[in-house]
Design a binder for these strands. Structure first.
Lengths: 231, 231
DNA sequence: TGTCCATCTCTTGTATACAGAGACGGGAGC
DNA sequence: GCTCCCGTCTCTGTATACAAGAGATGGACA
């Protein structure tokens, strides 16, 4: 049964093989085991998961429509390599989308949600002070997800998740920027404050600034690398 | 070859049968030939297009990920019926996304693009005065697409297109609202003016208002119908 | 007569076989 | 020695056959 699927989190009960494969490949992309540009060969994937090509094809199609994989008729699929200018555009949209989430969150979060958000933020502070990078970034992701959920707008959350997924493989590049963790925490601080105080525009501005700074760091990184296509 | 595909626009040269089927079904949904809630039976679709179930399944999967179709494992696919509160949320996001497009457009549109937008707007005025409803709404769509393209941000355009596609089957309901065409034109007028003048925030506000009004009309329509699920 | 259970059928999910389009390499010609 | 063309070969796209789950239907029992 599910032992046929080698990697990744276990899928839901009612899920099909295709879904399990999709989750596994998705995780491989997130974690960098599959780098952008890597070819996805149907036959070898079929062998790896010990199933036929049919569900593999379906999984790949789903990934194509999630934007994680690119595919051209009769020329196979590769993990989507993002062109630089497109990635900058995506960050640009991301900053607005996340800002929007924060604006809604400031208006709509329940007291429980606000407390949960504050708790997440406090946790990340502990990780920051202990210099636990990986833990900090894990909580960081939860933080953003909490704000997104706080928007109480599902389509908006889906858009945010989609953008996040497509940018995820590139986020690790900013890990090593000097003082990034400390600055990031300070920016989060502004966001939390505005949301807890129920100030939509301040929350929007703070979150937008936070994500925009990531664009700066990213383009800075790219200009050092000098490449037009990151892989 | 392509004569196997009965309906819709002809697909690209390199396209697969699955792509052709997807386009055909997409158009059926847009034009209301397939109403939300309609079951998509793989076998009968295969017969209709005179191909096997395999490409049909791929087409359906693509539609699922475009949000036009919903699917549960082993229970088939139906044209996505939107829950009311979800639809309102989508309009809510749409107003922000289109507002964002307008904001970017005001900053980034070239002189040629601005002239083309103005020309579209003038054309719609003629249709309005001649009371040519269908023509007006066709140009209306082009108008919105022009603004989206003017944002010069592809991911943003994709998001806007996706939302538009999912809302398209429901838009026709506002056709008959009293004075809607005239009001709509006036709202467009504000948008055009702001964009031509290069005023991002005014363009954002005008476009946001324009789409928000559609939400009002829509909810008004729904409250008259009284249903929780529109079909 | 109503309800519950078993079976049956219909539809989807998966496997496998086949066909066709590009890619790649070898050989021939310049 | 280099280039171009043709054949082969691999991989994707499609068809078809098979398996399995979900809902329907009918019968039996209360």
């Amino acid at each position: 049964m599910s032992d046929r699927i080698a990697a990744g989190k276990t899928a839901d009960k009612g899920a099909t093989r295709a879904d399990e494969v999709r989750l596994a490949i998705e995780e491989d992309i997130f974690l960098g085991r599959l780098r952008p540009g890597t070819r996805l060969d149907e036959e070898s994937l079929a062998q790896r998961f010990n199933i036929s090509r049919t569900p593999i094809r379906e999984a790949i199609l789903q990934l194509v429509h999630a934007g994680l994989v690119e595919k051209q008729p009769r020329q196979g699929a590769v993990v989507a390599p993002l062109k630089l200018h497109r990635m900058v555009q995506m960050f640009e949209v991301m900053s607005e989308i996340e800002g929007l989430c924060a604006r809604f969150a400031a208006r709509r979060m329940s007291e429980e949600e606000k407390q949960a958000l504050k708790h997440l933020h406090d946790t990340s502070k502990a990780h920051m002070e202990a210099r636990e990078l990986d833990a900090y970034y894990a909580v960081n992701r939860s933080f953003h997800e909490a704000v997104q959920a706080g928007s109480h707008n599902e389509p908006l959350q889906e858009i945010a998740r989609g953008l996040f997924a497509r940018l995820a493989p590139y986020r690790r590049y900013q890990l090593n920027h000097p003082n990034r963790v400390k600055d990031s925490f300070t920016e989060h601080d502004d966001v939390v404050e505005a949301i807890l105080a129920g100030e939509p525009e301040a929350a929007y501005a703070a979150m937008r600034r936070h994500v925009t700074i990531q664009i700066d760091i990213f383009t800075e990184f790219v200009s050092i690398m000098g490449g037009n296509e990151i892989q």
